[in-house]
Amino acid sequence: MKRLLTLVAAASLMPALASASILWKGDFETGNTSQWTRQQAVANSRLQVVTDVVRDGRYALKATVKQGDDPIGASGNRNELLYVTHETQGKEYYYKWSTLFPTNYPVNDSWQVITQWHQESCCGSPPLEFFVRGDKINLRVGGNTTPVLWQTSIDKGNWHDFVLHVKWSSDKKAGFVELWHNGEHVLPKTYGANQFGKELNYLKMGLYRDAAIKPEASIFHDGFTMATTLEDVMPPAPAPVEETPAPTPVPDDTNIPAEDPTPVIAPPTPNTPEQPSPQLPTTGQPPTTGTTPVSKNPTGVPDASEAATGGCSASGTSGTLPFASALLLLGAAALRRRRAPARALAPRAKR
């Protein structure tokens, strides 16, 4: 009891923190364990401040226990840090810390306390504790005869982030606990006695386990903070990720035939009436075969038949050519009639 009072007096002399709502930090950012009141360890090597496995800042605590480690001559094996937190009846606080079980942590089906608020008296189960059995972390309030309020896997190799809200009281209708784990509200306010009578509580953190457990084990703790508001211990929510707007789809015109921007419009075909072919008078000559016959007239002047069929189309737009041809044929016929009597009379004149 005298030792505990000495610890309380020493803690009251510690300098106050800058923030009125943050009452104390035991985050090891001093590079050692000087933030804590004292330690219960068989050697300094069992409670090492390390830099290779860290949750926040630059430093964290590595607590190691081997079978037979009993620094205070009590039940079980332990190596723990202790801080006198002055939890009294009716006080309400928020606590934050992180814990990691390495991948080689030995699983054992027996009790192993990792964080506890212990009563002033020396013996018995604490009024509030986080302990491991098998591969589960458990939260229990009121001693080892009360049920477990919350449980999760030890999840080797990954950090557990705890935020604990407590109103301390030995009255089961006034005291309560509330818990966030990894940012999730896993235990709403749950009422129950978390103090034993008028005894004060103090914090212990490290590793304390059944003396029957043989394998060596290590555990890591970091970032312990005690405050009066949730905002001072709750990690900020991650910033929302801005979504990149989807690009405007471009129509695929690879299979669309290109259109001529200047369509060609065919001119209208004139509706010209077909001209009838002229009917030539019959002259007793053989029908033509479509080719122009070679003239046998030695004078080079086309006769009536040549004039009628020579090289001009009968589908001309004028009716003058058929008419002139007819006149020419009539004139040629009249000339033959006049020449015939002359050729007949010529021999008679010579007689």
Rank of each mutant, 00 (worst) to 15 (best):
R343D: 04
A212N: 13
E199M: 09
A332H: 14
K172T: 11
P15V: 03
T103D: 12
T64E: 07
E129P: 02
F131A: 06
R3F: 12
H165W: 05
L328P: 04
D52A: 05
D210A: 10
P236Y: 05
S19I: 00
P127C: 02
Q40V: 03
G143S: 04
N77L: 01
P278N: 04
I22V: 15
T88D: 07
D52K: 09
Q279A: 14
D252C: 01
F176C: 01
D303P: 08
S121G: 11
W180S: 02
L280R: 15
R55M: 05
T254S: 15
S153K: 06
I256Q: 10
T30P: 10
T146H: 11
A239N: 04
K198N: 15
T51K: 15
L100S: 08
A11G: 09
M14L: 13
F323W: 10
V53W: 07
I265N: 11
D210I: 00
F224H: 08
Y95C: 03
A193G: 01
H185G: 05
H160Y: 01
T190Q: 08
D52F: 02
G73A: 09
G134W: 01
A193P: 00
S153Y: 00
K173Q: 12
E120H: 05
G90E: 05
S121R: 11
P268Y: 10
V8M: 09
P268F: 11
A212C: 03
R338E: 03
A237T: 13
Q39V: 04
W24L: 05
L187W: 05
F130T: 04
K25L: 00
A308C: 07
T33E: 10
W150H: 15
H160T: 00
P188R: 06
A258Y: 11
A266T: 12
S121L: 03
S318G: 06
V177N: 07
K91N: 06
N201M: 09
M205T: 11
T103N: 14
H160M: 04
L207H: 09
V294C: 05
P15G: 03
